[in-house]
């Protein structure tokens, strides 16, 4: 883009509309940018000189002004653009998304519309963790997202990692759709939020895993921990011993156990 060839306005223009969007991280532009009577970045460059880029392709202008955006920011920008009558139709939005390494289709459009409505505390977490459309897609199964909004606000205080957050979202969606009382899904002090939700979502498996643990008898110097690895339960064995002689003796006794 040839910035030096563009007109610069210092006088106020009363008929300008401001796009209600500010990126969460940074704004690339050093000037207030106008595109066909819409100021794209007045929220972040309020006092800067006004540059008219109406002659440019709007998807290019948006990219040059805001640069790479997180998915949450893209959703917020899309929501802001749709609020200005006729603006989104003028933007080559799929092209803009392509430059953001994102494929635009009906599925992502619906997701963007939904994500923009989510509580700010959740969006702050999702932006910080660079949550992807795939991470947030489970939420689309819930028809009224207002139902889960209070739960999503806990993401700020719980601060799960991206991968754990993704699993929590998945569990929250399943449990909400199964008509669990929303307050029962809130984090508490007894256990980690994910663990609590996992147990609620998988009661049959948790019960079976517990039975496996109780069924086996081991000597006191052996500690067995059941660990779920994907679709299987594996056992972690810990042996307490004082020296090599002690270890040999204990291993010998173990090898004589009937169930081994």
């Amino acid at each position: 883009m040839t910035w030096y060839a563009l007109s610069v306005f210092f006088a106020d223009k009363s008929d300008l509309i401001s796009l209600n969007f500010a990126p969460r991280s940074h704004c690339f532009s050093q000037a207030r940018v106008e595109w066909n009577d819409i100021v794209l970045n007045s929220q972040v460059c309020e006092s800067k000189a006004l540059v008219d880029l109406s002659a440019e392709e709007p998807s290019d202008v948006l990219f040059d002004v805001f640069g790479d955006l997180s998915f949450v920011e893209i959703a917020e920008l899309y929501a802001a653009c749709t609020k200005i009558s006729g603006f989104i139709q003028k933007i080559s939005w799929p092209l803009f998304c392509q430059r953001q390494d994102m494929q635009w289709n009906e599925k992502t459009e619906q997701l963007c519309e939904a994500v923009a409505q989510l509580p700010p505390k959740f969006l702050a977490w999702a932006h910080k963790k660079q949550a992807s459309p795939r991470d947030l897609q489970p939420l689309m199964a819930i028809k009224d997202l207002a139902v889960v909004s209070p739960l999503l606000e806990h993401f700020e205080s719980q601060a799960p990692s991206r991968s754990q957050g993704k699993m929590i979202i998945d569990l929250l969606v399943d449990l909400t759709l199964s008509n669990h009382d929303q307050t029962s899904l809130e984090p508490d002090k007894q256990s980690a939020w994910y663990d609590k939700l996992y147990k609620m979502r998988n009661p049959m498996t948790v019960a079976r895993d517990k039975t496996l643990r109780e069924d086996e008898q081991w000597p006191q110097y052996v500690q067995i921990h059941n660990q779920r690895q994907g679709d299987r339960i594996v056992k972690k064995m810990q042996i307490l011993y004082s020296d090599n002689k002690d270890l040999s003796k204990k291993l010998g006794r173990l090898s004589e156990m009937e169930h081994l």
Binding site: T205, L212, G230, D231, R232
Partner: peptide
Amino acid sequence: MDSFVNQAETFKGKDGKLRYSYDL
């Protein structure tokens, strides 16, 4: 969640697909 499939307790298998727990 009316579907038994969506109600299923599934876990990732070695091939990356979600399946019932091995013992089930």
